[in-house]
Computed example of a mutant assay.
Amino acid sequence: MGTKLLSHLVTLTDKPILIGTWDSAEWAKKFYIKNGFRLVSSHEKKRLLNTYWNVPERQIETSVVLCDSQWEPKRI
């Protein structure tokens, strides 16, 4: 059911998709990776969380960000 819902949501946009979750949520990370997402680097994670989310520093430290195949990391 989760895969069907995620697949449907992906069809609703032509923009890259970013997903944030807790680093300790192994089941969530495995689910998104199984469905074509990949973990971004720690540096990119921090930049993304500060840009697109409003979360405290502690949550940034304990979270991960996954992206779909359309995501292009910002070149520094």
Rank of each mutant, 00 (worst) to 15 (best):
R38G: 00
K30P: 03
T51S: 15
E44I: 04
T11W: 13
L9P: 10
T21C: 11
M1R: 06
H43Q: 12
Q59L: 11
S41V: 04
L49P: 13
W22T: 03
T13F: 07
L9H: 10
W27F: 09
R47C: 05
W22L: 06
K46P: 08
R58A: 14
M1V: 06
N35I: 03
V64D: 05
P16D: 04
E61N: 02
T51A: 14
K74V: 09
W53R: 15
T51K: 13
V40Q: 02
N35F: 06
Q70R: 09
N54S: 15
E72L: 08
Y52K: 14
Q70P: 08
R38S: 01
E44R: 05
D68W: 02
F31P: 01
F31W: 07
T21L: 06
A25S: 10
H8M: 12
W53T: 15
R58Q: 11
K15A: 12
L9R: 14
A28I: 09
L5D: 10
I17P: 06
L12Q: 09
Y32F: 05
K45E: 04
R58E: 10
I60F: 10
D68S: 01
T21H: 12
C67M: 01
I19M: 04
Y32H: 06
H8R: 06
V40R: 02
E26L: 13
Q59V: 15
W71D: 00
K34F: 03
A28Y: 05
K74T: 10
E44M: 03
I76E: 11
N50L: 15
V64K: 01
L39N: 02
R38P: 00
I19Q: 06
T11R: 11
E72T: 08
L49C: 12
D23P: 11
V55D: 15
C67A: 01
R47S: 06
K45V: 03
N54A: 14
K4H: 08
R38A: 00
L66N: 00
E61A: 10
S7Y: 12
L66H: 00
A25T: 04
E26Y: 11
W27H: 04
N35A: 08
L9W: 14
E26I: 13
T11E: 10
D14R: 11
T3P: 14
K46C: 09
L39E: 04
P73N: 06
E44V: 09
L66Q: 00
G20I: 07
K30S: 01
I60L: 12
W71P: 01
R58C: 07
E57G: 12
V64R: 00
G2Y: 06
T62Y: 07
S69P: 01
L48D: 07
I33R: 01
S63C: 04
Q70C: 05
D68Q: 02
V40E: 00
N35C: 12
K74F: 12
A25R: 09
R38H: 02
K15C: 13
K46V: 06
T62G: 11
A28H: 10
D68T: 00
L18F: 02
E26H: 12
